[in-house]
Design a protein around this nucleic acid. Structure first.
Lengths: 143, 143
DNA sequence: CTAAAATTGATAATGATTATCATTAATGGC
DNA sequence: GCCATTAATGATAATCATTATCAATTTTAG
């Protein structure tokens, strides 16, 4: 999802691009591949727009997620957001149970399973796969 | 996980089986295959032990989960618990986006993927797979 | 039976998210 | 540009699930 794709989506939804929203969007675009919480977005957005409030951050993140510019995922106890990349394979997450680092898994073996479920009468809308593991770094420290 | 398996586990952890804990356990054993929230457990447990408090329910559920008698899973915005069935395949969940019904998927295609990740240096501890879908019942209503 | 330890329940605290609402900013028609 | 309407914002209160606290009660071991 590049800058131009984002702009197109914003127009499609005739979305008013205020300074606050732009600040949030820049934070997200500048953190491609990372998974940010609303609080983290707030902190960084304040460097561009010092008076932005947490409510606006939540509203903006949710709105961007509803137009498929961001992905909103629950990690443990809070939601985290990242730029949505439809070109890339659907990806899953490995959460290190020791240090909390989040790694992504590109492989997607779920298509076959989903086809199976659709034959049983479900219409799959989305899926969410998380692995809990010791990451390679923490594995070394254990040894 | 039958009654005797549970009792054995309780002994292994020399777990004091108070009336309150027994009430919670009975609720869970009587709802095999369902996914109950702490609040739901409280309501039903009160029919056996009217004065039990919500804090005790949380404590008991977490303790039972820590000794692998229950499974604790985040659904949407709250935790739900169910009797853990190690004999059965690890199973995943389909959450209907329309009516909220939870169906289970027995198939487990994840072993291969996990083996792959372990070769990359991860040590997988657990995983969590959820599908969001329209269930067969809601599909009919849509048509 | 008694002292130490564990359990309980009421309730306060926490923390993320959402709702409220008055104020401010942007838009469209003129 | 100038209003009137509508949308967006920020401060803050409300919500809700979960966790922590702590005094009172119960259980256990000796």
């Amino acid at each position: 999802m590049g800058y131009s794709d984002v702009n197109e989506k914003l127009k499609q939804h005739n979305y008013r691009l205020t300074n606050q929203r732009e600040a949030v969007l820049e934070v997200m675009l500048g953190n491609r591949g990372r998974h940010l919480s609303a609080e983290e977005v707030l902190q960084e957005a304040r460097s561009k727009h010092p008076l932005i409030g947490i409510a606006t951050v939540y509203r903006t993140l949710d709105k961007l997620a509803s137009m498929d510019i961001l992905t909103k995922i629950m990690f443990g106890d809070k939601f985290r957001y990242e730029i949505c990349d439809k070109n890339r394979h659907q990806h899953h997450h490995i959460i290190c149970v020791s240090c909390g680092a989040i790694t992504e898994v590109e492989e997607d073996l779920l298509n076959r399973l989903e086809a199976n479920l659709e034959q049983k009468g479900f219409q799959i809308v989305d899926h969410d796969l998380k692995f809990y593991a010791y990451c390679p770094v923490c594995m070394k420290q254990k040894a």
